[in-house]
Amino acid sequence: MQYTLNAEQIKNRLMTLDALENSGNENAEQKLSSLKNSGVWNLLFDGEVDWVSKVTSLIEIGKASPSLLAALTDVYLTRNILPDTDVLYASAFLEQDVDVDWSSIATTVKRDEDSIVIHGEKRFVPNVDLAEGFLVLAKDKSKDRLQIILVPKNCDGIEIEEQTTLGLEQFNFSKVTFNQVTVDPSNILKSIEDRLEDHVSFEEPKIVLAALASALAERSLEDSIKIAGTKQRFGEKLGDTQNVQFKIAEMTVKINAGKSLLYQAAQKKDRNEKSDVDVAMAKVYLSEAANLAVDYNLQINGLQGLENDSLASDLYMSQRLTELYITPSEIDRNAIAEYVLAVDEF
């Protein structure tokens, strides 16, 4: 057994911390560009780099800039579909009433002589300002199959409207309308007859969200410890009261419990073992531990934590995405249960 980082993993962590320090006060978009130009980008996306290093770096990125890490979620998703490109694309999968039930996709793709035509409205499309194009999930009704199509951003018929969502101020989703958009049939990247999950892995984006949850929870804990050590009430420090100590203890234990699951998943990935259930467990547990941590932190901050420019408020608003995005906790719980039910001995 071994519970600490090895020399190579420490080197990778230090490189990430250096890059984040140098990126200073840039916004999330600028930070993403800086990241692309630094060695950290290779660390995150190079298949040769181990996942324990990646997870460690992702958490550090999330602690420095939660919005930047949220943006990376989709980069992992799109690079899973198009691995050999440095061009940034945005996934356009989700719709008004479609977040996990891909069979209900309403956006269509039709053959029209030598081209294909995409029509429909996508929601929650991330990284639109940075991306050069979209990976659109659409349904070919004539063949009763889903297709993923690369659509350059400059095509005619595309309308983009920013969506206002809770938290993560520098990370935005957009509504993107594809109004009879025409592209070449060679832009079809995947044609899927059965389950989308069998062709597109959501495992890596879920790892990023689990890391984001960990980062938000850790920031909350740090903030709580700071407040507990400085704020006075009734002549004593907040940190001397049992109710605050108990909250901080619970946050500490749950964050560590969740991180242990995330690193366990990373280790399995590094050994090329099946890790989907481990990733699901890490995401469910850490996102819910983060829910508790941001709430406790707000409570420890008191009313000041409700001010819109406070750190506690920012963390509180930003956490919610981690329980909903890519897969909501309920979908992951069902996947875990499926696995558990196939096991006889624990």
């Binding site: 230090l14 804990l221 940190g239 605050v244 108990f246 901080i248 203890a249 500490t252 242990s260």
Partner: peptide, 27 residues
Amino acid sequence: TEIHHMIIGRGMVEGTFIDDSIENVFV
């Protein structure tokens, strides 16, 4: 369970339980 909450919470607030060494990944 209450004593352990107290031990952990107090140690974190006082800083004696915070290990920020570079090889450690837990809080």
